[in-house]
């Protein structure tokens, strides 16, 4: 470094043949010593060092892109997440069925009158994640509650018709959801998520 770092004022030394042997040891200490001083002014050589290091750094960073993104869902995984259709007619009053979409369990809950009333007559402002029941069902389809059956705490599958609100209870760390899938007790921060879905007819929905 010190030998190569010939700064501007000493550039003429580059032409001295003695330099080739890095020969500061034999009697040259006096003159060569100055080359180790850092100059106040940046030189072309400094520029080249920085430019080379930058290009190498950017190149190394760019190789991280494929190395990291390869871990994201691949094309086949994304393609397998196509929408599914669910026939609602066989689901009895008060029954909950579980279907799978994108590897996630989806609960379709045919709610009873009592359950609907309980879900609607809640002081929304007092909920940890305030949301009225109407925002969690499709208009005119109050009896159908469709939600992703994955606890918003750490991803376990809550059990339907369990817990103090007759909604869902997560066995992992004790989160309790009501019949609207809203979080009422326990460590989960959010209401159960709703999948994208639409009614194709009164007895058929498409999820996804």
């Amino acid at each position: 470094m010190s030998v190569l770092g010939g700064d501007g004022p000493h550039a003429e030394q580059l032409t001295q043949p003695a330099r080739a042997g890095c020969g500061w040891t034999d009697g040259q200490k006096g003159t060569m010593h100055v080359t180790t001083m850092s100059s106040a002014e940046p030189t072309r050589r400094d520029f080249l060092y920085i430019a080379t290091a930058s290009v190498a750094g950017i190149g190394a960073a760019a190789t991280l892109v494929p190395l990291i993104t390869q871990m994201n869902p691949d094309a086949s995984t994304i393609a397998a997440g196509a929408p599914i259709e669910v026939d609602l007619s066989p689901i009895a009053d008060g029954q909950v069925i579980k279907v799978f979409w994108r590897g996630k369990p989806i609960y379709v809950n045919h709610r009873t009158k009592k359950q609907i009333e309980e879900a609607q007559n809640v002081d929304v402002a007092k909920l940890p994640d305030p949301q009225p029941d109407s925002a969690r069902v499709k208009p005119g389809h109050d009896q159908w509650q469709v939600l992703i059956g994955i606890c918003t705490h750490l991803g376990c599958i809550p059990i339907a018709h369990q817990g103090p609100y007759d909604g869902y209870f997560c066995p992992c760390h004790g989160s309790v959801y009501d019949t609207s899938g809203r979080i009422r007790q326990g460590p989960a921060p959010l209401n159960l998520a709703l999948p994208p879905y639409a009614f194709l007819s009164d007895t058929k929905i498409r999820i996804g």
């Binding site: 871990m71 994201n72 869902p73 995984t77 994108r102 590897g103 996630k104 750490l154 991803g155 992992c172």
Partner: peptide, 30 residues
């Protein structure tokens, strides 16, 4: 499932990190 979901607690990017860890939309073959 539970341990990878620990990362979902990170604000904003948590969900993307979990999907990236899984290589899918749930714990699976990847």
């Amino acid at each position: 499932t539970v341990i990878t979901n620990l990362f979902s607690a990170i604000p904003l990017v948590g969900e993307s990190i979990v999907t990236w860890l899984w290589g899918g939309f749930a714990v699976g073959n990847p």
